[in-house]
Design a protein around this nucleic acid. Sequence first.
RNA 1: CGGGGCAUAGCUCAGCCUGGUAGAGCAUCUGCUUUGGGAGCAGAGGGUCGCAAGUUCGAAUCCUGCUGCCCCGACCA
Length: 446
Amino acid sequence: MRLSRFFMPIMKESPAEAQIVSHKLMLRTGMIRQSAAGIYTWLPLGFRVLQKVSQIVREEQNRAGAIELLMPTLQQADLWRESGRYDDYGLEMLRIKDRHERDLLYGPTNEELITDVFRTFVRSYKDLPKTLYHIQWKFRDEIRPRFGVMRGREFLMKDAYSFDVDEAGARASYNRMFIAYLNTFARMGLKAVPMKADTGPIGGDMSHEFIILADTGESQVFCDSALTDMGAPGLDVDFDADLQPLVDARTALYAATEEKHDPAAFAAQVPPERQLSARGIEVGHIFYFGEKYSAPMKAMITGSDGKERPAQMGSYGVGVSRLLGAIIEAHHDELGIKWPEAVAPFDVAIVNLRPGDSKVDAACEQAYAQLRAMGRDPLYDDTSERPGAKFATMEVIGIPFVLVIGPKGLEAGLVELRERATGAKHELSLEAALNRLAPTGPQVAA
RNA sequence: CGGGGCAUAGCUCAGCCUGGUAGAGCAUCUGCUUUGGGAGCAGAGGGUCGCAAGUUCGAAUCCUGCUGCCCCGACCA
């Protein structure tokens, strides 16, 4: 993309309403524009990141065997009356009437819809297990939206739903999502720590929140620091194998949010030097809830014994739009955003320090063409801004690599390659710089 | 929903107390100079001061109502 043709309304000052750094930076860099409280337009720069994050989520869901579909945002109230949640959900649910005075709602989640789909088409244990997911906009009419996309009313969420014949199968489905989540977040450059969450009336040990540690996180969390060093299982995990040992390795150590924190247990189970108290952002939540929806909505499965029983279900959410805020909270400095390469809106920038200079223009065009040919997604700053302004722009929008090409360097046959993450600057030939920028595949090293 | 605050140019804000022709910086446009860290000079454009109704000769300013947004709390992917 040539910057002169792109639409990137960047600002030098951040709007007054933003409180936390991710919200300020998203507004400043022209990633989003607030449309109403908790409702945002995704401008091109932000939309690119949203798509990259979505795609990583999608790839890891697929890798774990989940099947993508797409359910509507508007749902009819009748389904929610079947599950009993139409009355339970309260004011957080946005209720709408159509022209025939029929009750609709803008979906805050999709258990009812997916259960309806499932019960219509699936009858036999032979068709199980199945995990279906979609990435779709949700609306929850929060009393007080805040922190930009971290707590919006409209938000993009990946929600998956598993269906199994029995609890053992449900546990296997749960474990697949558990592992997929660790890989998903690691690919985005995040260290996500699974923490035991409230299972409510269902009970059991099958609910976890995935927490990103960030200084500006909204809740206090406590865990064994060994968890943060554990890393993700890796993209070569065999999802057909028994994943229980991998899950157990990560659930054996202490990890709790403030609500579930037990100071006595924390002190007893975790060596003092590994007692980590930090701020955290919840970016995922997985849950086994058994027959909660399948029983009242009659999603019945015939087992090998010929008997009908309600499907065993679980649901698995990832806050996709929220993740952008979380990533920025975890990756920024005083100059701006430092995007991990996998989610950067552009992975490389070319800064032309002297547009109009034929040698500089030629070198930039060559770099631009070659980077695209090698599968990179470069942003070429071909504008006539001054160098300082160009550097500052690339820094605030957080492009991981910046190739600086100017007349002085070219005299000596050199260009400069800058790394946003480390601040490192390397003087080298254009050819050498391009070699260094050869793309790598997906990585889970956080 | 309880408590607090804000609403003036695209952005950040001053002006309001004490009513009298609407301002600054940044951004935008034109010209010249400049070009390896957010340039300089000269000029220009841009606002029914959130909306409505009052008080007044006269309202951005005072009064009332409404709407929107922000902060703290309870709630939450």
